[in-house]
């Protein structure tokens, strides 16, 4: 029935969950699946287990999706190079003129100053949502769904 597929990609460990004791990746998957069912979106919810799966995604898989929601977890603050891979992933999908939203559970600006400087994607827009906890995913899904309907 649905003709649009949304990929939700979560960073390894989703370590921000440490500060959200009532949340688990399973719980997030559950609420996201429920909303996507309601909106008629096919959902592919993935937990990246390492850099390799990300690179594979960038090389091969990105054309299969109509929209991307990405939670880089604590990458913006841990100094890892993997954040660049996430941003590259976002850029590649955005350059295909597909909706992309970066989601963080916590308000990352309260944790560290000036942690977010996405790479430049000329003529594309990448959405950004932080601080809403699990509701940030729902906000992002609704935004992506509406954007797909407008295009």
């Amino acid at each position: 029935m649905s003709d649009k597929t949304l990929l939700i990609l979560n960073g390894p460990g989703l370590s921000e969950l440490a500060g959200h004791s009532d949340l688990s990746t399973d719980r997030i998957r559950e609420v996201c699946t429920s909303l996507c069912d309601q909106l008629g979106l096919d959902l592919d919810f993935r937990q990246a287990d390492g850099d390799e799966s990300l690179i594979r995604f960038v090389d091969e898989d990105s054309k299969r999706f109509d929209a991307l929601i990405v939670n880089p977890g604590n990458y913006p603050t841990d100094g890892s190079d993997a954040i660049d891979l996430y941003r590259l992933t976002s850029d590649i999908v955005a350059q295909q003129q597909k909706p992309v939203v970066e989601v963080h559970l916590a308000n990352v600006f309260r944790q560290a100053a000036n942690v977010l400087t996405p790479t430049n994607t000329p003529n594309t827009e990448i959405g950004f949502v932080c601080g809403f906890g699990v509701h940030g995913y729902l906000l992002a899904i609704k935004a992506v769904h509406r954007q797909l309907g407008e295009n």
Binding site: V101, N107, F109, R110, A113, N114, L116, T117, P118, N120, T121, E125, I126, G127, F128, V129, C130, G131, F132, G136, L139, A143, R146, Q147
Partner: peptide, 29 residues
């Protein structure tokens, strides 16, 4: 729009650290 994707003078926000949550780049939606 997403200020982080625009000119560098828009990369610093004095608002972000004073609020609970931030939304950017989703258009007027």
């Amino acid at each position: 729009s997403n200020p982080h994707l625009r000119e560098s003078f828009r990369h610093v926000s004095h608002v972000s650290s004073a609020v609970d949550a931030v939304v950017a780049g989703l258009g007027v939606r």
